[in-house]
Design a protein around this nucleic acid. Structure first.
Length: 245
DNA sequence: AACCTGTACAACCGCACGCGC
DNA sequence: TGCGCGTGCGGTTGTACAGGT
């Protein structure tokens, strides 16, 4: 199956987005939505390919994006989820309200990975953040009435694409996390305990478990299934870390 | 003060998947 | 049933900036 290039490079702009482009995109999406990314740039009068518009919206312009440094809880959650799920950034992002897969991926590659590699220390200590990155130009241009930082933890998630994601594939496709099968040896007592916990889905004390409750309220059965497995793994991770103490 | 190096983040690229025709 | 299109995802690259020398 030969696919056409995502953007026929006919005078389409590339590189960093300007504030005007951002505003144009946001205004268009607010008015018309984004039912068709490919047609969107034309309709909005943007000289960008649809893919670029989609990326910009998802990673930067969405009103529910939470910007700023990751909290240590978030970093710990990423580390745990990555240990469980591997490089499934979108799935991990779905567990962290307001965070995007791209952002999480960047954080992982820049310091979480190094932190894990360089130290066997407990994860509570965040890697030193060298700088508070410049405020993005486009954001400052947008930080008007249109984009309020919805940083409250219970907000709805739009990052998750609810791709039909099965547990089997998540376990089999462990290219980057080959140690999963070794890390999680599940015995019968684990299953009985975990299943009991998942029925009564009270939080385990971790901040991210709040988001489970939100998502599990979703009518989508695939989301329910995903929540079940992620919750399961989270508990497994908790139990493992407890056993190491 | 100027240059060099490392870090953080935005953006791009290519592939895979799902859906409609 | 097969094909083409649109979208989503993960990997990678480019670049701006801060700190160090």
């Amino acid at each position: 199956m030969v696919r056409a290039p995502c953007c026929e490079k006919m005078g389409l702009k590339r590189g960093p987005w300007t504030a005007e482009e951002d505003m144009t995109l946001v205004a268009h999406i607010e008015q018309h939505g984004h039912s068709n990314w490919r047609a969107l740039p034309k309709q909005a009068g943007l000289l960008r390919c649809g893919k670029s518009c989609r990326l910009r919206w998802i990673n930067y312009l969405r009103p529910d994006i939470k910007r700023g440094n990751f909290t240590s809880e978030e970093e710990d959650a990423i580390i745990q989820l990555h240990a469980m799920l591997g490089n499934r950034w979108s799935t991990i992002a779905a567990r962290l309200p307001g965070r995007t897969d791209n952002e999480i991926k960047n954080v992982w590659h820049t310091h979480l990975k190094k932190r894990l590699e360089s130290s066997s220390k407990p994860s509570g200590q965040a890697a030193p953040k060298r700088k508070a990155k410049k405020p993005a130009v486009a954001v400052s241009a947008l930080e008007g009435p249109t984009s309020e930082p919805a940083s409250s933890p219970g907000q709805s998630l739009s990052t998750s694409s609810a791709t039909g994601y099965s547990m089997a594939s998540s376990l089999e496709n462990t290219g980057s996390s080959s140690s999963e099968s070794e890390e999680f040896q599940i015995d019968d007592s684990f299953w009985s305990e975990t299943l009991a916990m998942s029925v009564d889905s009270s939080g385990s004390g971790m901040e991210t478990s709040d988001t489970f409750g939100v998502d599990s309220a979703s009518p989508s059965s695939s989301n329910d299934e995903m929540d079940f497995w992620v919750t399961l793994f989270m508990h497994a991770g908790d139990m493992q870390s407890l056993s190491q103490i």
